Amino acid sequence: METSTEDAAEETRGPARPAATVTDHADAAAETTAVAADTTATAASPAPVAIRPPTSLSPSRAGDFMQCPLLYRFRVIDRLPEKPSEAATRGTLVHAVLERLFDAPAAERTAPRAKALVPGQWDRLRESRPEVEELFADDPEGERLARWLTEAERLVERWFTLEDPSRLEPAEREMFVEAELDSGLRLRGIIDRVDVAPTGEVRIVDYKTGKAPRPQYAEGALFQMKFYALVVWRLRKVVPRRLQLVYLGSGDVLTYDPVVADLERVERKLLALWDAIRLATETGDWRPRPTKLCGWCDHQAHCPEFGGTPPPYPLPVRAADPGGAEQGRMGPE
């Protein structure tokens, strides 16, 4: 599940999330692992880091390519820096609180205890990601920070109206998953929570700190969950009984019970998507796809749609197929 944990404003109500916050907080951790595996030099090395073609796919990176192939390139190939956002950072904070709460005995998993975890988890987040400090650099009196933390507490408190953590004993929290398909494609990500019933039935749960999408966009919201269900199915040979999205921003719970046919469709979609990514990687043909989401993108200075120039392409290229690649048209089913 790779940065944005929170959907700023109305972003979850549309077909895709703004570029600046599309990465899920858990997917960010998964991508860190991927980057470490896909580089051949360390930061301490005086030589430039060797950029290698992508070798795996997470839900967020798949979403990036479907939203805009050039955005995928900027994040995965060029690894351009992005500024932290208040919305995504608050989502990361809330996720950390909900995970840590399960360290307490069931009877002590209360709303006041969860809210009390917020300041400490914020301190830990600042230590692990010092760049978030810049979010409130222009707030010397701490008033905006106080409101931001209060909103995080409100989201944590709302969770207790949607689920009862005293009745839950997760089998896994922040579970890193990785599976290699028969095609050789590696899928990876981090699942917020996995519940396993005494009968062996598996439920995959994901927390969203934004608002639930409109019904016509529900399928897009479930893409990430079906991605995780596919990975779990390939790893454990068990189709999850239920996929559950908990929207703390609006107080909604979206559920879906997948079947094998669902996961087979997702696998076919991912294989087609990966073929398009490989073609773009080999040819260097990463086409921008302008949408209203461009307004949230950190990379306008490098985007031709805004008069910018992408960095020099760091990978070898071959001639594009004159028949035309359809990678620029890849989108949700």
Rank of each mutant, 00 (worst) to 15 (best):
E6Y: 10
E6F: 10
E6A: 10
A8F: 13
E10A: 13
E10S: 13
E11Y: 12
E11H: 07
G14W: 14
D24T: 12
H25K: 08
D27K: 01
A37S: 11
A41N: 11
S45R: 09
T55M: 09
T55N: 08
S56F: 04
R61A: 11
G63L: 13
M66Q: 14
M66T: 11
L70E: 00
I77W: 06
P81S: 06
P84Y: 05
S85A: 13
A87G: 13
A88M: 04
R90E: 09
T92E: 12
T92Q: 10
T92Y: 13
L93M: 03
L93Q: 01
L93H: 03
V94S: 04
H95P: 01
V97E: 05
L98T: 04
L98E: 05
L101K: 02
A104F: 15
A104T: 01
A111G: 06
P112E: 06
R113S: 00
A114C: 11
A116T: 02
V118D: 03
V118G: 08
G120V: 05
E127N: 13
R129I: 08
P130T: 04
P130D: 01
E133Q: 12
E133Y: 05
A137Y: 06
D139W: 08
T150W: 01
E153D: 05
V156P: 00
F160E: 00
T161H: 13
L162R: 07
S166M: 09
P170E: 03
P170C: 07
F176K: 12
V177E: 01
A179L: 06
E180Q: 14
E180T: 15
L181Y: 02
S183Y: 10
S183H: 10
G184C: 08
G184R: 08
L185T: 00
R186P: 04
I191G: 00
R193P: 00
V194C: 03
D195C: 07
V196D: 03
A197Q: 11
E201M: 05
V202E: 04
V202I: 15
I204W: 04
Y207D: 02
Y207K: 01
Y207G: 04
G210E: 06
P215A: 09
Q216R: 15
G220N: 15
G220E: 07
A221P: 00
K226R: 15
K226A: 08
F227G: 03
Y228A: 00
V231S: 02
R236S: 06
R236T: 12
K237G: 13
Q244R: 15
Q244A: 12
G249A: 02
Y256D: 04
D262N: 14
D262F: 07
E264W: 08
R265E: 14
R268V: 09
I277N: 01
A280H: 03
E282Y: 06
T283Q: 06
G284T: 07
W286P: 00
W286K: 02
R287S: 15
P288N: 00
K292Q: 13
C294T: 02
W296M: 07
W296T: 13
C297Q: 09
H299K: 04
A301D: 13
A301G: 01
P304N: 03
G307D: 07
G308E: 06
G308Y: 06
T309M: 13
P311S: 08
P312N: 04
Y313C: 04
L315P: 01
L315F: 09
R318P: 00
R318A: 07
A320P: 00
D321V: 01
P322G: 08
A325C: 11
R329Y: 14
R329W: 15
M330T: 07
E333P: 15
